[in-house]
Nucleic acid binder design. Sequence first.
DNA 1: GTGGTCTAGACCACT
DNA 2: GTGGTCTAGACCACC
Lengths: 125, 125, 125, 125
Amino acid sequence: MQLDFNNPKPIYLQMVDEVKKSLARGELKPGDKIPSHKEQAHLSKVNPNTVQRAYQEMEREGLTETLRGQGTFIKNDPELLVHIRSEMAQTAVQQFIEEMNGLGINPAETERLLSEHLYNGKKEV
Amino acid sequence: MQLDFNNPKPIYLQMVDEVKKSLARGELKPGDKIPSHKEQAHLSKVNPNTVQRAYQEMEREGLTETLRGQGTFIKNDPELLVHIRSEMAQTAVQQFIEEMNGLGINPAETERLLSEHLYNGKKEV
Amino acid sequence: MQLDFNNPKPIYLQMVDEVKKSLARGELKPGDKIPSHKEQAHLSKVNPNTVQRAYQEMEREGLTETLRGQGTFIKNDPELLVHIRSEMAQTAVQQFIEEMNGLGINPAETERLLSEHLYNGKKEV
Amino acid sequence: MQLDFNNPKPIYLQMVDEVKKSLARGELKPGDKIPSHKEQAHLSKVNPNTVQRAYQEMEREGLTETLRGQGTFIKNDPELLVHIRSEMAQTAVQQFIEEMNGLGINPAETERLLSEHLYNGKKEV
DNA sequence: GTGGTCTAGACCACT
DNA sequence: GTGGTCTAGACCACC
């Protein structure tokens, strides 16, 4: 769970995204129990209420299910994984394209830059 | 000047980015005068203080210079444009790669998705 | 026994209500034995403690009586059924009227809406 | 704003309902500003955070719109009023019917009881 | 002053 | 111990 406390994006939303990414990567599976908000709060060095807010948001989005007194679970919907994954990928691609567009960089150049960075191991910014 | 008031990124930083993008796109050129903060405030429907803060930030970053009584100007440095442009492009590319990485999507698939979205005009998600 | 685990109304109170409704409907009769708390807990997929608490509440309200070693029974009071039934009906009606009132819907419209929904089988909203 | 602190229904949801009812009754109109969370907190003798949560919920439901630093406003959608009103009325009617059904009271009797209570001024329970 | 986030700590219902 | 609500009080960005 990678949280950036200097990112203006609220922590609870970062947490939601992290769970979605874990799902997309296959680290979490439908039906899995996720840590209690207290436990996760301890792990992430964040206030339990903040975690709870993240969990609430996930439930609201239909990502998780809550059983009173038992815990919070990734919803056991076989289509969930593929949905989340394609939704997040699409958003990322779209955002990238808009950004490059905003910089006046044309599609060919965009593809070139991407390939260049993808394959020369420049993993550090 | 595209501002998103629900974006957690502070408005004044969004304004800085927008100026940089205008530069990258060639809409603004080194030496150009940018609107006074009052004028810009009116244009963007934003408080003058916020514009002021954006202008301060740009000056701090060496993007602009202010001439007392004459206004604020894009710095007249011929290399500025190319610097800004490549810096912003690189950041965007890097961010995109990290995002796709975080979703467990491999480079080949990343390129495929990009091309798909670049060339089929899907501007809306 | 319809329990809604997301209803903020405590489970044990929901159970009490369900017993009262069974009585009103005639499914339970004065003098009938109701399941032991263990049995009921299993049936309702609820913790035995919760059932215990529901039974306590019913006894407190004079709805049931417990005979040591024999179990819990609906009180054998011939007037019980009619009491419960009219009390619950009155509460429901009153609550409904207040709700419609709160929405600024007048009596005539209230009656019309009720009839409409009563007779066209719209069981799902 | 009628809040019942003994009602197990969370206060913030009671507040949402109260705003909806005010809308249905025409006391609030689309476009109206609603009190700041601090002000409302003071009026309702409730913690500002609780009010904020209610406001957030309303925004999430598309009932209100927020302008950073300016306040929270009822969404200016002319259809909003009729939507809310009919939605809430339908829910109330449906709930009432289910309740009476649960008590084994038939439609005719349900209508009779309603009329009786509607027109004999029994406003107190 | 206004909304938004976060922390800290309390109480409750249920397992 | 688990989720849910509430209070109290702090900090931030923006008007």
